[in-house]
């Protein structure tokens, strides 16, 4: 018995435990309500749905650990998708050039966000909220409010392909999660991100180029937002101006559920991945269980607040 209690305690002390437990509980509950829930097609759908918001959430994880935040990610994703499709359709750019330009726009938006908030000192919340409006506006100016199609066949094929029964978008996202998690945990650069977010003065005294680290996280997030927007464009097969609307909220919710501190310095990419998974499981589960879809939104809100509450509780028990 004592051994059992001890092992539970140790599990509880793992940072990601706070999300893993409810994730397992939710999966079991939904599976018992509807046995098709953990079926192949359902799981595949859950995973595929995560890819776009998930990709941005990885960037946002780095960014929030470094002490920043980016509210403009959804709008930037939309702008980049439209920019890429517009360049390829209306300007006749070749596919690689169009995609590179889309990514560059995302990185540039991130750079502007970073410079405004880190160098000039405009609070990140305000600077990136501004970018949210600007990017959304530019998006509609560019496409005049109409979807851009058709997009090149190569991209159509790419978006429709089902490697391993999943999608390229998900596989790219999965690879990104593994790589970003390892980099954050194991590399000097990752350590610099944690230090900068933990205490920027301490990091500066240690000789870490904190300004550069913080701006780089914004650029990284912007580029990933662009990638997510362009991937969704491939899957939808059309440059839809509404791409990315409201994503910023899902992104931040999943990062926070995953255990990243709003004050920086704490969190992991794996945690964010579990946070995304929990959100998606609850959403799909409620659909499978036949609940009114609007309850999904309620559930996400509740989960986020509860997750942060559980995390606080966990930290408290660990210290005393």
């Amino acid at each position: 018995m004592r051994k059992f209690v001890e092992s539970i305690r140790r599990l509880w002390a793992i940072p990601e435990a706070g999300i893993l437990a409810p994730l397992v509980v939710c999966a079991v509950v939904f599976q018992s309500i509807n046995p098709t829930f953990l079926g192949e097609s359902s799981v595949s759908a859950i995973l595929r749905a995560m890819a776009f918001v998930g990709m941005i959430a990885v960037g946002q994880t780095w960014l929030m650990i470094s002490g920043g935040i980016d509210l403009s990610v959804g709008s930037v994703a939309g702008l980049c998708a439209i920019t890429a499709s517009w360049l390829m359709k209306a300007q006749g750019w070749p596919v690689p050039a169009g995609i590179a330009a889309g990514l560059a726009v995302g990185a540039a938006a991130g750079l502007i966000n970073g410079v405004l908030s880190v160098r000039i000192g405009i609070p990140a919340f305000i600077a990136t909220l501004g970018m949210l409006y600007v990017a959304r506006g530019l998006n509609y100016l560019l496409c005049k409010g109409y979807p851009i199609y058709p997009i090149p066949d190569a991209l159509k094929e790419f978006g429709r392909a089902e490697p391993l029964g999943l999608s390229w978008a998900f596989l790219l996202f999965a690879a990104l999660v593994v790589l970003a998690d390892l980099c954050l945990r194991r590399t000097v650069y990752g350590r610099m991100v944690y230090a900068t977010g933990g205490n920027v003065e301490v990091a500066a005294i240690a000789g870490i180029p904190t300004t550069r680290v913080r701006i780089a996280c914004y650029v990284f997030t912007g580029a990933l937002a662009a990638a997510a927007g362009i991937l969704l464009m491939c899957q939808l097969n059309v440059g839809q101006p509404e791409i990315g609307t409201g994503w910023e909220l899902d992104v931040i919710a999943s990062v926070v559920i995953g255990g990243v501190s709003l004050f920086g310095g704490v969190g992991t990419v794996v945690g964010t991945f579990l946070g995304l998974l929990l959100m998606q499981v609850v959403r799909s589960g409620l659909v499978v269980a036949g609940v009114n879809t609007h309850w999904q939104t309620v559930a996400v809100g509740v989960i986020m607040v509860v997750a942060v509450g559980v995390d606080l509780l966990r930290r408290r028990t660990k210290i005393s």
Partner: peptide, 26 residues
Amino acid sequence: DGLLLDKSIRENVSLHDLRRISRFGI
């Protein structure tokens, strides 16, 4: 501005010379 308070002794000590404890950035 002296310590990363919620990090371990290990992570604090190594902070000023991450290059010495790493190879190729890892």
